[in-house]
Nucleic acid binder design. Sequence first.
DNA 1: GTCCAGGGCCTAC
DNA 2: GTAGGCCATGGA
Length: 214
Amino acid sequence: MLVRIFDALNKCYGYQNWWPAEDEFEIVVGSVLTQNTNWRNVEQSLRALKEPGIMSPEKILALSDQELQRLIYSSGFYKVKTRRLKAVCSLIMNEFDGQIHKMKSIGLLQSRELLLNTNGIGPETADDILLYVLGLPIFVVDAYSRRIFSRVGIGPSGDKYEVWQNFFMNNLPNDTELYAQFHALIVRLGKDHCRSKPICNGCPIFEYCSFCKI
DNA sequence: GTCCAGGGCCTAC
DNA sequence: GTAGGCCATGGA
């Protein structure tokens, strides 16, 4: 069922350029800034960091909190996100010589554990980094995933992250590219359809979705 | 004016 | 272990 839904979304929307970024560290920064925040707001902050050439862990750590807060202001929660960005930058500098891709050498489970023990990195942000930066096969669960597949009527009950992650990973091939594209397609679908409307005209998964058919 | 966005932490029971 | 409050801007 999940593979068929993936195919339907893929056919409808095609390849999603996810995650748009010039380098791997920019994805890390974006994953923190986009927490509960519209991507449009995040893009302003990413530009504010890139234009003066500050998009690196050592340069971000060299900024005062006030300077960093000003640069990421448009992303909201700018005080907590300043703390979180510096925490993940410190991790990258202290453990991986400033190069996030070196984290891959310690394996998926240890990488995930390390990220989850970092202030401001929860399960979704950790999995964003594992999947889109390190290219490791792990499924990213978000609010859209839960909402859409609850409405389709095939998702698990409750909203525990690991339960939902297991639901996807136990019913899909263990494939980084598929996980990356599926998550992107789910977000795309979530933006287009099934937000609050009781009927989703033209929804690409209409035939599978009990919600659309109400 | 209200609602929500590509979450996570902290505190109180 | 979990429900609720909090963090905050910007567009619809």
